[in-house]
Amino acid sequence: MSLYPAFARPRDLGQAAEIMGSLSTGAMIIAGGQELMPSVNYGALMPEVYIDVGQIAALKGISEEAGAIQIGSFTVHRDVQNNDLIQSKLPLLSYAAAQIGGGMQVHNRGTIGGNIVAMHPLYDILPSLLALGAEVDVLSDVGEVRVALADLMKDARHGLGSESLLVRVHLKPMMPGAGWSYEKLKITAGGYGSANAAAIVTLDSSKITSLRVVVGAVSALPVDMSDTLSDCCGQAWSAHLAEEVEARSSAEIKEPLSDHQGDGEWRRAMAGVMARGAIEAAIKKAG
């Protein structure tokens, strides 16, 4: 807590690592500020040092290398939405980024890295990234490490804080012909999501050959339903299977959130409705 915080503006990853390594707790990395600033404004957070990572070129840019797409963590939502590479090879991600709340203003400033490290249960990006099997590069004083996003989230310190910096996201392009969908349930236009689901489906004639489904906004972290629902593979979508998917997805939510977006019982039920809806919509697009 400091009334008179200091400011650091590392020019490259090396400087960033040096600063992070030398500071005690109380330093905060700031990118777009969309997540951090509300807490700062209300005095809930009073960082001692702001580490502005906006000058680090390595955090920027979207590129394709060796069959994988890299997205710098400082990429704003709007660029994720409108980038040609992402639109053509990761349409699910581009679409999910467009569903982020807060309007154009937040799309213009909020970054994919900030959205990830917030690990906010109601935010829009994580379910799609998990469905896409994203990996991330994390920089700390021990250097840069690549980890699966799913593994990073298992770490209790997943908020990353001031000791480590999310550098970029690695994603494999979606399979040609794969169907995808991101479904988001809101009570009203201004509400945060009460439940959401990202799905990627491949079909062989009408039979499901692969299925990725991640449900968000219903528990503390997104829940990957892909294993639970793996026996959908080999089957054709039917009313019966849809009901089963809905019931099993709901049952998978052990500790539903209960907050202003809705009570736990409803959220659990909506997990199923969203999973079912996302798969259904993805199947329609597949082929």
Binding site: P38, I187, T188, A189, G190
Partner: peptide, 16 residues
């Protein structure tokens, strides 16, 4: 009071 911000107190937007 649990309602503390405009995240909790959801007012109509243009799409509503």
């Amino acid at each position: 009071q649990l309602t503390k911000s405009l995240m909790d107190y959801v007012m109509p937007r243009i799409g509503d």
